[in-house]
Simulated assay, not measured.
Amino acid sequence: MCHSDLPPGQAAPDAVRREVDIPLPSGELMPALHVAAAPDAPGVLIAADMLGRSPYYEHLAALLAGAGFQALLPDVFFRQGPLPEPGAEAAIARRARLDEKQSLDDLHAAVDWLRTRSTTVPVGTVGFCMGGTFGLDLASTRDELVTVAYYGFPEPPAWVVSPPPRPIDLVGSLRGPVLAFWGEQDTTVGMESVERYTELAAANPQFEHAVLPGLGHGFLGSSDLGDPADPGGATWVRSVAHLRSHLLPS
């Protein structure tokens, strides 16, 4: 299940929020939410799931700003428009109109936008589900990224109409610090493909991953991000530490 609403009781820190437009090579402008600890803080791109921008990811952007970053949450569905109604059925129908190779190009432009606004050269990415797939693709196609991927698809599902490149086909080019998470019971992604991917990704000495026992797809959405004793919450703590260790000056 993808992430939309914020679980109750999880407060976000105050942060400066603004709506921005990201220039694309096509001449279009991609709308995005920008939440910053400081104007020149290290940048972190958030790549959302097939539900797109939602209160959940806006919350994560505020948490990242509270940790010392500037977070950018782009709307890769800006060409398709908002969901006409909530739910997976409408989200799948909208995703069928998405050219995910083009979306990957859009995210490259978003990384470039963050890089010009930060005093640090590397840019962080945090992706979830569809966005996790994008994150793994980005980590195999450009340098100077610090990557976190939650339940990305090494092989995008067969029902996706216009998929991005398969991360498993690009894994030989995986570079930079990469931290990836999956749930042991993730039948949506398929753990056989995850096993194949992680075996090949181990050739990158900076690749780390964890498969969480007893958890399925989208486990972070029901986790307490502020509780390191919560298995899912502990992955978020680890993700922020991963980003801080590579992006924030010591």
Rank of each mutant, 00 (worst) to 15 (best):
H3F: 15
P7I: 07
P7H: 11
P7M: 08
P8V: 11
P8K: 14
A12F: 07
R17I: 14
R17M: 15
E19G: 12
V20I: 15
I22L: 15
P23D: 09
P25M: 05
S26C: 13
G27R: 06
G27Q: 09
M30P: 04
M30S: 06
L33H: 14
H34G: 00
A36E: 15
A37V: 04
A37S: 15
A37Q: 08
P39I: 02
P42I: 06
L45H: 04
I46R: 00
A48K: 00
A48H: 08
D49T: 14
D49F: 06
M50V: 14
R53M: 07
P55V: 02
Y56K: 02
Y57H: 10
L63I: 12
L64S: 01
A65L: 10
F69R: 01
Q70C: 07
Q70S: 15
L72Y: 11
P74N: 11
P74C: 10
Q80N: 13
P82C: 13
P84A: 12
G87W: 14
A90Y: 07
I92P: 00
I92M: 15
A93V: 13
A93K: 13
R94G: 04
R97F: 02
L98K: 04
D105G: 14
D106Y: 09
L107R: 04
A110G: 04
A110M: 09
R115I: 07
R115H: 06
T116D: 02
R117V: 11
R117W: 06
S118M: 07
T119M: 08
T119H: 14
V121Q: 13
V123G: 00
V123M: 02
G124E: 09
V126H: 01
F128A: 06
M130V: 11
T133G: 14
F134D: 00
F134M: 13
F134K: 00
G135D: 12
L136C: 04
L136K: 08
T141N: 00
D143L: 00
L145K: 03
L145P: 03
V146A: 08
V148K: 01
Y150D: 00
Y151G: 05
F153N: 14
P154D: 08
P154F: 07
E155C: 05
P156D: 09
P157D: 07
A158D: 15
P165L: 11
P167E: 02
I168W: 05
D169V: 06
D169C: 05
L170I: 03
G176K: 05
L179W: 02
A180L: 01
A180T: 02
F181S: 05
E184M: 03
T187Y: 08
V189Y: 01
G190P: 06
G190Q: 06
G190K: 07
S193A: 11
S193P: 00
S193E: 05
V194H: 02
E195P: 00
E195Q: 14
Y197V: 08
T198H: 02
E199F: 01
A202N: 05
Q206T: 12
H209K: 04
V211W: 03
G214Y: 06
G214D: 05
G218K: 06
F219A: 01
L220Q: 13
G221L: 01
S222P: 00
A229K: 10
P231N: 05
P231E: 02
G232D: 04
A234M: 10
T235S: 09
V237M: 03
R238D: 13
S239V: 12
S239W: 08
V240D: 11
A241H: 11
S245E: 12
H246Q: 13
L248E: 13
P249C: 03
S250I: 02
